[in-house]
């Protein structure tokens, strides 16, 4: 239990720091870079927020006596293993491409190196697809409700910010935050849907 609380605290803390950093960079504070690139920062924010919410959900789930006795389903073990592998490969590809991009300025090679982290992203998508295929009907329903929640609120956020930008209330900034927003909102939607069916 203590480890889970530590994970939540660390996840939320990292998410807040990275979100603030991403926002600072988006609004033009060049010296506020906590990580080398804004998109890396926003991805990191979304992903760590998602992990924190998932850990919080896990703690709530484990609070019931029968849930504590129930083993973790093999499909979730497989999913975590696949996702962890893909995430490690992604981080390695990000760091590797960052260094490789400094060695060349030829457009085609730069494009190829920039696409390097996409392969682990595909592995992440495969891990999610394989998990969804193995879900039972309630798990699938919770997944769908979480996806719809993330889609609806990301669309609301995008259009709201779009209006603000159109009328010059907000400056134009990178759209890399959208993916982070989807991840974070999916986590929130998932926690809400799990709570609904508890």
């Amino acid at each position: 239990m203590q480890t889970n609380k530590l994970l939540i605290t660390a996840g939320v803390g990292l998410a807040i720091i990275a979100s603030l950093n991403g926002a600072a960079i988006a609004f033009g504070y060049e010296h506020a870079q906590f990580l080398s690139r804004p998109w890396l920062s926003t991805w990191f924010a979304g992903y760590s927020a998602f992990l924190a919410i998932a850990a919080a959900g896990l703690i709530r789930h484990r609070k019931t006596a029968e849930a504590s006795a129930a083993p973790v389903e093999p499909k979730f073990k497989r999913y975590f293993r696949r996702m962890l592998t893909a995430t490690l490969l992604y981080v390695m590809a990000i760091i590797g491409s960052h260094f490789l991009l400094q060695l060349t300025d030829q457009v085609l090679i730069v494009a190829a190196i920039t696409l390097l982290p996409i392969t682990p992203c595909y592995l992440m998508l495969r891990a999610i697809q394989q998990l969804v295929k193995e879900m039972d009907e309630l798990q699938l329903r919770i997944f769908m409700e979480s996806c719809l929640f993330a889609l609806a609120w990301t669309a609301m956020g995008c259009i709201t910010i779009g209006f603000f930008q159109f009328y010059k209330v907000l400056p134009n900034f990178s759209i890399f935050w959208v993916f982070s927003a989807i991840c974070m909102l999916f986590g929130i939607g998932s926690a809400m849907a799990h709570r609904r069916y508890q």
């Binding site: 029968e66 129930a70 083993p71 799990h194 069916y197």
Partner: peptide, 26 residues
Amino acid sequence: TQQDLADQLAVSRQTVNAIEKGKYDP
């Protein structure tokens, strides 16, 4: 147990729990 029933139905324990509590109609 809920887990025994879940195994027989090939669903998760959470699904059995939600059905029992009337939160989800199978």
